[in-house]
Amino acid sequence: MNLDFETRDEAEIARLPDKVVLANAASLRSALQERIAAGSYRMVLDLSRVEFVDSSGLGAILACVTSARRRGGDLALASPTPRVRALIELTRLDDAVLVTDDEATAVARLLGRQAA
């Protein structure tokens, strides 16, 4: 899967596609974990373009959270669309993962958490 990445401060922003579902969850997971393994273990996933995510997509994201944390980093979710936010809340994903309304807040909190 080809993802758009952007580095901001010491964090990496990954822009997710419009759908994160069973059909592409495995390739998304591989693409993100490859980046994490290469050293981008403080990562923000930009969800602003994601129209729909299912449990397979959530599972792929959580696998990457675990990978980042094992390396001493973390992963945050930014700018979820209303439908995606509803699913995040329904599954209580926000109890385990930092979710913010915008990218800048996610980066700041991710780096702040690292500095603490």
């Binding site: 449990s55 959580l62 329904l90 109890d95």
Partner: peptide
């Protein structure tokens, strides 16, 4: 019931039940 917070699987059935 929800799976462990960082469990990768187990949310599909949960979504059906809660939605």
């Amino acid at each position: 019931e929800p799976p462990e917070p960082l469990a990768e699987r187990g949310r599909g059935s949960l979504i059906m039940q809660r939605a």
